[in-house]
Structure formats: C-alpha cells, structure tokens
C-alpha cells in the first residue's frame, strides 16, 4: 500500500448524504419503535410514555414462541426452496445466448412489479375448488372430486416462493455469469461428470452468492404479512401478521413494537449466522 492519502473523485462530505438518509429513515423510526415497545399500553387505544417490560414479558409466552417458530420455519423453507430452484436455473440461464438471457431477466423483473395482493389473490383463485387446478385435475381424471389447495401451508409456501424466486435469481445472476467457464471445463477435462462438476466446483465457488440469495429471500419473506392471511390457515400466521393484528386491530402498539423488535433481532442473528457459515470455508 502506498503511503500517500487516497484521492477519491467525490468530496468527503458526500458520504454524509447516505448517513443522513439512514438516520432519517431507519434509525429514527427504529428508535421510536424501541421507545414504544417499552411504553405503557393505554386501554383506551393508545400508549403512554414510560419504561416497562410488560410487552416483552407477554411475548415470552408459549403461544408467541410457537408463532415465532412458525414464522421462521416458513421463511427458512421458502428461502431454501427458492435458492434450490433459482441456483440451477441461473446457472442454466447464464449458459444461454445473450438475447435469451435478457428476455428471461426482463420477464422475471416484470414479475417483481406484481404486488403481493395480486399474487396472493391469483394464487388463491388458481388453487381454489371452484376455478382452480383442482378442477383441471378432476377433468383429467387424476382426482375423484375437485378440491381446494388453499388455504394450506403448501399454498403459502408456493406464494412466498413465487415472490422470492425473482429476487434470488437477481442476486445470483451477476456472480454466476462472472464465474470463469474454464473452471467448469477444467473440472470436466480432469474427469468430473456434469453433476460432479456442478456440486464440486460451481456450488463451492458460489457459496457466498448462494448464502446471499438465501438471506435475502429469508428476510424478505419474514416480513410478508398478506400472503399468510390469504393463503395460509391461522396456525400458519407469521409474526408479521400478528404484529399487524396487534398494532392495527387490537390497538396494542407497545406489544406490536415489542414483537417487531424481537423479529428484527432474530432476523439479524440468523443473517449473521448465515454469513458466518458462508465465509468460513469459502475464505477468499
């Protein structure tokens, strides 16, 4: 390294801009949330400033423990399925011609433009008894009676994967397309069959990207509160749904805030764990 100070093109104060934005739109709301979470619930529908752990205490019940477990497992499952589908897909995509790649990426991006509401209702229609694939299966003679596939855990995970998949592909695409194709060819020449080269060379070299995509989909689906209500049964309601329920319908803002803080801490812990796992052996 040279001893002379590095000259950057942008003046230093420009760095204050993102810092200011971060403070304004993240730290301040987070602070308010923290403050509310320890406030005292006013039964009339709002809260009074104070400092008490009541909301957190209530949260440490078996019921909410289970909700937390459901939330996390649903998101983990969705993230795992998304990445398991998106990774081979992206590798395949990056081997296609440039024009085909662009087209497919544009289609994926446009899927991102659909709102959760549209996706939720479309899926619930598609999986319904009266107008959905149940009818199709019945017509094909696969099942005896038309049946509904929603609400169910399957429907919920399908919906979450539908949302998460394009994100996973978009996170995976740049590193996958940057992977030196000669690395794979080298493995082939040295005797690795296709699957062997895939799991022995492509996957380990892209561990970071895979973990990144996993974290993104996990965090993203953890915050989803519409789909669990549309596609899942009440036992599949995630913490986000309960937060909304408490804050909006039960008028218990301190409890909603406490749950939010907890959700965030858990998410952070998991992200930290995952990135540690990603770094450990793939030390670059």
């Amino acid at each position: 390294m040279s001893a002379t100070p590095v000259q950057t093109a942008a003046p230093r104060w420009l760095g204050l801009w993102p810092a200011a934005m971060l403070t304004l739109f993240f730290l301040v709301p987070f602070g308010i949330m923290l403050a509310v979470s320890v406030a005292h619930r006013d039964v009339s529908g709002f809260y009074e400033w104070s400092f008490e752990w009541d909301s957190y205490a209530r949260f440490l019940s078996a019921f909410f423990g289970k909700v937390m477990a459901v939330s996390i497992s649903v998101s983990l499952t969705a993230a795992a399925i998304c990445v398991a589908l998106a990774f081979p897909f992206t590798v395949f995509l990056s081997n296609m011609g440039h024009r085909a790649q662009t087209r497919i990426l544009v289609v994926l991006l446009s899927a991102l433009a659909l709102s959760e509401v549209i996706i939720g209702f479309s899926l619930s229609t598609l999986l319904s008894q009266t107008a959905g694939i149940g009818n199709l299966f019945h017509w094909l003679g696969l099942i005896d009676e038309p049946r509904a596939y929603t609400p169910s855990l399957f429907a919920l995970i399908t919906g979450l994967c539908y949302i998460g998949f394009p994100f996973a592909v978009l996170v995976l695409y740049p590193p996958v397309s940057r992977l030196d194709p000669e690395i794979v060819e080298a493995a082939r020449v040295m005797g690795a069959s296709g699957p062997r080269a895939f799991f022995g060379v492509i996957v380990p070299n892209l561990r970071g990207a895979i973990v990144g995509a996993f974290i993104l989909v996990f965090v993203f689906t953890l915050g989803s509160y519409l789909l669990p209500q549309l596609l899942g049964r009440s036992e599949h309601w995630t913490l986000s749904v309960h937060i909304t329920d408490q804050a909006v319908y039960q008028s218990n803002l301190p409890f909603g805030a406490a749950m939010s803080v907890f959700l965030m801490l858990v998410a952070l812990a998991l992200v930290g764990l995952a990135s540690l796992a990603g770094r450990e052996r793939g030390a670059a």
């Binding site: 030196d180 000669e182 690395i183 060819e185 080298a186 493995a187 060379v201 380990p204 070299n205 561990r207 052996r281 793939g282 670059a284």
Partner: peptide, 10 residues
Amino acid sequence: VFQSLALFPH
C-alpha cells in the same frame, strides 16, 4: 492447462 489457468479458488 487453460489460458486463464482455471485453478479452483475454493
């Protein structure tokens, strides 16, 4: 031996 060498970084 490839032009880019193609050694495995992992």
